[in-house]
Nucleic acid binder design. Structure first.
Lengths: 218, 218
DNA sequence: ATAAATTTTTAGTCTTGTCTAAATTTTAAG
DNA sequence: CTTAAAATTTAGACAAGACTAAAAATTTAT
């Protein structure tokens, strides 16, 4: 049995470890969990005892296969609930995170399966993040940050990196949603701002925005 | 802020106090919560400090208006989720309780409201229990126990008192569901067993069954 | 009306998850 | 290569919610 707190730590470790295979530091975990390093150390020991992470003092942690699956399964539930909230209960994409943070801990295999079926087995959540299947596999996606585009080119918004409501509401305000076509017109080398065209409206976006929007070349 | 544990105690007190206005004893609460009397005392003190119950040492508790509302609101959420599970996710009525026990603690006003609307403002859960409205009012129902019927008479199943899966599965096996017409043929004074007719099948039910089935005279 | 039985409360302990402060280890700098 | 800085762990404490055992209050029965 994995407790609610343990699930949250596993998720944090999973997200921190995502890009590479490097070990995740105690401090990184504490920062992500908004707790102190000593609390993280305590929890790491519990996770290690349960076989959810590999841990050597002072050397950070790695998720074990068991830990990775537990983390991915919570993420699967989180994202399915987000889809439910947006598609069925008329939440907007900037309102779902908090509620999904609670719903993701509900324990019922049948609930998850049936919810998945009810939603027609979605593969992405409302922010464009992939939903792991029931075996814990993530559909591989090939998305790049808008900021990585260097020349005038056309692309499609496929996800957000930052999913705080501030950023999502900024996108709403400028009519940028998943699937929206974005034409890059130019990029300012001084401040990395970009001039783009969205639905026939020209718009200048900052480096910060460009670094938090995932696109695919169209 | 009311904790998960506090919500469960409030629910227990509400259910124990339901019929009359008498105070609820520490022991009764402890028994219902499957804990010890000392634990109940501890919690009662917390609830009293938060103004959720009126408490005098050795004299049991009463819910305050605030406490009653908190309890009813949790019950509202519980029953809405039960409807969701049965109507939308194909759960059967004997599978919903455990999951709803978890879902009832999710905190989001919007979630509850939207769920209620999504389900078309249901007034009853899958066991025939009334769903409080968002102001905490319960539709008054006039149902009686099947056991209270003394003569050959026709009635309709409108609810269950015991909603354990054992009992619900017994009802399934004998084709008794909410809305099913039940004709009372005779009652045995020796053991209070009853002979009834359901969908053209004659059936003898025990006192235990008759005392756990709510009906209304048709 | 008082003794016995029952109920309730108190006192002290435990576990989970957190904290602060101090000690230890690792990393980085000179 | 040695010391200063940063990161990590340990030690001890606390709050929530539970428990056991013992004390106190209430109820029941004679």
């Amino acid at each position: 049995m994995v407790t609610l707190s343990e699930e949250n730590y596993l998720k944090a470790i999973y997200h921190l470890a995502k890009p590479d295979k490097a070990s995740v530091s105690t401090n990184a975990i504490a920062t992500k969990m908004l707790t102190k390093a000593s609390s993280a150390t305590d929890m790491i020991k519990k996770l290690a005892e349960k076989g959810l992470v590999d841990y050597q003092k002072y050397q950070g942690v790695h998720l074990t296969e068991k830990g990775r699956f537990a983390a991915v399964f919570v993420i699967r539930k989180h994202r399915l609930w987000e889809v439910f909230l947006v598609k069925k209960l008329n939440f907007s994409w900037d309102e779902v995170h908090e509620v999904a943070e609670q719903l993701e801990h509900i324990k019922s295999e049948k609930l998850t399966q049936q919810l998945d079926a009810f939603l027609d087995h979605p593969t992405e959540d409302p922010h464009g993040d992939p939903i792991p299947d029931c075996e814990g596999n993530l559909p591989s996606t090939q998305k790049i940050l808008l900021a990585q585009i260097e020349r005038a080119e056309s692309c499609i918004c496929v996800g957000v990196k930052d999913s705080t409501s501030q950023f999502l509401q900024y996108l709403d305000k400028h009519n940028i949603a998943l699937g929206t076509k974005i034409e890059v017109l130019s990029k300012e080398s001084f401040d990395e701002s970009m001039s783009i065209n969205v639905k026939n409206h020209q718009l200048t976006i900052s480096k910060e925005v460009a670094h938090n929007l995932f696109v695919k070349i169209s």
